[in-house]
Computed example of a mutant assay.
Amino acid sequence: MAIPDYQKIMLPLLKYALDGQEHSMREVIGALADQFSLSEDERKELLPSGQQPLFDNRVGWARTYLKKAGLLATPKRGYFEITEEGINVARQSQKEINTQFLSQFPDFIKFKSSKKQDEKISSELDELSERTPQESMELGYQKIRKELEIDLINRIKNISPDFFERLVIDLLIKMGYGGSRRDAGKAIGKSGDGGIDGIIKEDKLGLDVVYVQAKRWDTNVIGRPEIQKFVGALYGQRAKKGVFITTSNFTQDAKNYVLGIDIKVVLIDGQELAQLMIDNNVGVSTLSVYEIKKIDSDYFTDS
């Protein structure tokens, strides 16, 4: 089945705690995953950021909202237990607990009211039927990032070949290759030896080198013949490693070809180029930074 949203998790989570014992989050996540008959892939599915399993995140938010309503308590870090009010609710013939149901509890109303920006905005909790606030934030981030990737690719396709070579140098250096920028600048764009645009140090000591080919193409797709030409040039130099960078894309035949050769060749298309630029802060600047924080339970523990 599909991974349930955090509201559908609330009632099963509350009933799980009916034994009155303290339960760890790890324990309840496994038990509820079994109860919802989640597959291994569903249990391992991650948030857009890749930082946490999606189901774990939703169980965490379900616990948070039940706690805000006074139905659960957290006696110590990573553990929770049911309250008297929670026992009363769990024993009712309730088919589902959601944010609308929780709005009858004064503590939850107070929590809900604190989320309003002004009188015209209704609580976001009623709108998040499937996504937790963290999911919504991460999905929004991924959307912004995807739009930035597209803008970067379009911008790169319109720059001069010389500027593109400098861009490649800047990126490789930011990724830890090339030694100094002066060394890299001398290497890229100077060779032109049978399909090789440049040679760059793999590390600052220059223990090995990487041969580079960079193609600033707009719509033409890089096929197997172009890659074979590059690989042939690598064999001619007795090279072991090569990177082929393009603003375009590679055909599947080209991708399959590099998997069956002895030389290690990495293909970087326009999308991956844009992603690497964003990750390494090349050609982009930071507009805003948002930090997600939580209570430090250790701080509030008596010594």
Rank of each mutant, 00 (worst) to 15 (best):
I159A: 09
I268F: 12
G195H: 13
V209Y: 11
R182T: 08
G179N: 03
E165F: 08
D170T: 09
D193H: 04
T246G: 06
D183W: 07
D253Y: 05
G260D: 13
V210P: 00
I261T: 11
A239S: 14
V258F: 05
Q252A: 11
D203V: 03
A233W: 07
K255T: 12
Y235K: 15
I188M: 11
P225H: 11
F163M: 12
T246V: 07
G236Q: 12
G223S: 14
L167S: 03
G232T: 13
G185A: 11
Y211G: 00
G270Q: 08
K204H: 15
K174Y: 03
K264P: 00
N220Y: 10
K240T: 13
L171H: 05
K215P: 08
R181C: 01
G223L: 01
L205W: 11
I188K: 07
Q252I: 06
I169S: 09
F250W: 05
S160L: 12
V265Q: 00
I159D: 05
G185Y: 04
I200S: 02
G176M: 06
Y177A: 01
F230E: 02
D262G: 13
L259N: 13
F250Q: 02
F230D: 00
E226N: 14
R181T: 07
A184P: 01
E165S: 10
D193G: 04
L273I: 01
A184L: 09
G178N: 02
I263R: 08
E202P: 00
K174Q: 13
L207W: 07
V212G: 02
G195S: 13
V258A: 10
K215C: 08
L171T: 12
E272K: 15
G236K: 11
I261D: 10
D253P: 03
F164G: 06
K157H: 01
K215L: 11
G179I: 07
I261M: 09
L267P: 01
V209H: 10
E202K: 11
Y211Q: 02
F163D: 15
Q228W: 01
Q275V: 00
V210N: 01
L207Q: 12
G236I: 04
L207Y: 14
R216N: 14
I245M: 12
F250V: 01
G206D: 00
G176N: 08
G179P: 03
Q213L: 10
N158W: 01
R216A: 06
G176S: 03
E226Y: 03
G242Y: 03
V243S: 04
N249T: 15
R216D: 01
F250D: 02
D269A: 09
R182K: 10
G206T: 10
I159F: 04
